[in-house]
Simulated assay, not measured.
Amino acid sequence: MQQQETAILIASIILIVLVVLIIFLFLIFQKRKNSLLEQQAAAKKAFEKALAETQIEIREETLRNISWELHDNIGQLLTLAKIQVNIAQDDPERLPEVTDTISKSLKELRALSKLINPDAIKNLSLTEALSLEIERFNRLQFIAATMNVEGELRLIDGKAEIIIFRILQEFFSNTIKHSKADELNVLVHYKTDRLEIKARDNGIGFNQHTASPRQGIGLLNMQSRGKLINAVVKLHSREGEGTAILLTYYYKKPIAGMEA
């Protein structure tokens, strides 16, 4: 009888220990789950904030481009047309020059309208948006630029496309403003599991080990933006050998804070 009571007591103790252990493990699991949910929420919030900032930066860059084109490009063409009209009043044979200048102005205005229309920009794919940038560089003779697309085009998350476009736009801007390059080559390669974008200029380059704060911050900005969409951004440059960027984006990796 005493042995039976002892067995029951031991069994009860074991049961209590198991219950306590299960409750303890459940609490740990719940705490980790809550912590993970908080991290995901924070990551999502950070991503949405970065996305909003990126959209604002793209809009500001677009407005700067529009302002520049209106003032220094289309404005100059219309001023030239006005001068040609005055000359043509005394020399009618110069009228074809006026027609040609006005035609160029209309062409520039049509190209500019693509930038002004937010719906048009919003509905562009990544390659179409990059192509517009390349066309603009060549049209305004900023730099001799080329873009090649390889592989079968893949649908990419719209938010990721915005981040990728801004990273490359920042690289292009640095190339035109600081590199003293006259050539820019861009390769967009859609591979089976990832998108690779390589851009290279033939400018003066710089020493990455002794880079200026501006260059260092620029690279960190591009890399931090890439991390938001689980993309890898690498910059390579040497003095006298130009600068290149390699962006690798994996299709199946979830965006930060967007995990199921």
Rank of each mutant, 00 (worst) to 15 (best):
M1Q: 07
M1L: 12
T6W: 12
S12V: 07
V17E: 03
L18W: 07
L18S: 13
V19E: 06
L21Q: 09
L21N: 10
I22C: 08
I23H: 08
F24N: 10
L25F: 14
F26I: 06
N34D: 14
N34G: 15
S35C: 07
Q39H: 08
Q40A: 07
A41S: 15
A42K: 15
A42T: 15
A43H: 07
A46W: 08
L51F: 12
Q55D: 07
Q55P: 00
I56L: 12
E60V: 07
T62N: 08
R64G: 06
N65A: 13
S67A: 15
S67M: 09
L70E: 10
I74N: 00
G75N: 11
Q76A: 15
L77S: 13
L78Q: 04
T79P: 00
L80H: 08
K82L: 10
I87D: 09
A88Y: 03
A88H: 02
Q89P: 02
D91Q: 14
K104L: 10
S105E: 03
L106Y: 09
L109T: 08
R110C: 04
A111S: 11
N117I: 03
A120S: 11
I121T: 05
L126M: 09
T127S: 10
A129N: 08
R136E: 03
R136G: 02
N138I: 01
Q141M: 10
M147K: 06
L153D: 07
L155W: 06
I156K: 03
G158L: 14
K159A: 06
A160R: 01
A160I: 04
I162Y: 04
I163R: 00
I163N: 01
R166D: 10
L168T: 01
Q169E: 14
Q169D: 05
H178N: 08
E183P: 00
V188A: 03
K191F: 04
K191D: 04
D193G: 09
R194H: 08
E196A: 07
E196P: 01
E196Q: 15
K198N: 13
K198V: 11
K198W: 06
G203E: 00
G203K: 03
G205C: 03
F206L: 07
S212V: 04
G216W: 08
L220K: 13
L220N: 11
R225G: 02
L228V: 05
V232C: 05
V233R: 01
S237V: 05
I245D: 00
L246E: 08
Y249A: 01
K252A: 13
E259N: 13
